[in-house]
Amino acid sequence: MGVQLDHPLHAAVALPLLAALIVFPFVVLAIDEPFYVVLASRILIFALVATSLNLLVGFGGMVSFGHAAFLGAGAYVVAILMQHGVASAWIAWPAAVAVAALAALAIGAVCLRTRGVYFIMITLAFAQMVYFVFVSLKAYGGDDGLSLASRSVVAPGIDLNSDTLFYYVVLAFASTGFFLFARLVNSRFGRVLQGIRENETRMEALGYAVHRYKLGAFVLAGATAGLGGALLVNQNELASPGTLSWTQSGMLLTMVILGGVGYLWGGVMGAAALLLMEELLAAYTIHWQLGLGLVLLAVVLFAPNGLATLARAAGPGGRDG
């Protein structure tokens, strides 16, 4: 199996999907199932975050087991600012992105000096540190998490507390984010990153500043996860330590692997598949985690390259990767 460096974003796939997502709320509200709007927002948020992790894992070869730290940091920044009376999305959301980016810069600068399994472990260690810092902040909820008084304020007349409106905000961020991601992985930066994934020493020998490229990707992914966190906290109206826990990092990795590591649509498909599966199983049994575990196990054993590869083999523009 050769390595594929081109990851074209087919307009024939992307535009109908976007159109479907735009009309989606009208359809489900027409059949009086507003819950699905909330679910779709959640899927879009996680699609954005999982895609950012896929940039690291799939395109940069950096298996980070601590991505939840940035997601949770973004969430907490918005919640903490809200507690101090800063409700404006124009301040809180960029702040969430900035804090997550700075955290990624600091953590990445240390972690990226290690390789392979040590990288997995050191990102886990840093994520645990972030987790314990937030859990111990009693002023900000500690173990219980910090709830939002209301969703962030955008402008007079635009009330994010409307789930439908919030869905469109999320859709705007997620689709823009995904479009930029598609541009990025096909850019020179994306090529260099994939080159580093394939053979770091060779890229170093060719004169690329390998460390800087990796750190750049790490910061970008962290900042995107921070944005995802800012959206997620508005969705849940609660910043909880669970968002920061290592099982959350595991879930994000699971989405990426499930969808397809290193495939353009991997993060999106993984997030959608996992969350829909969760929802579907939870409708039948409270023990949905058992079913989820069995499905994941089956995927690893029988569909080792994730769902995106299946789609790629069958779908339009199907070039085997």
Partner: peptide, 21 residues
């Protein structure tokens, strides 16, 4: 390692839920 993480994470979910059942 990625596949191992996913598969054993799945086992962890299965074990937890089985004990709960």
């Amino acid at each position: 390692h990625l596949s191992q993480v996913l598969a054993t994470f799945a086992l962890l979910l299965i074990a937890n839920e089985s004990m709960r059942i």
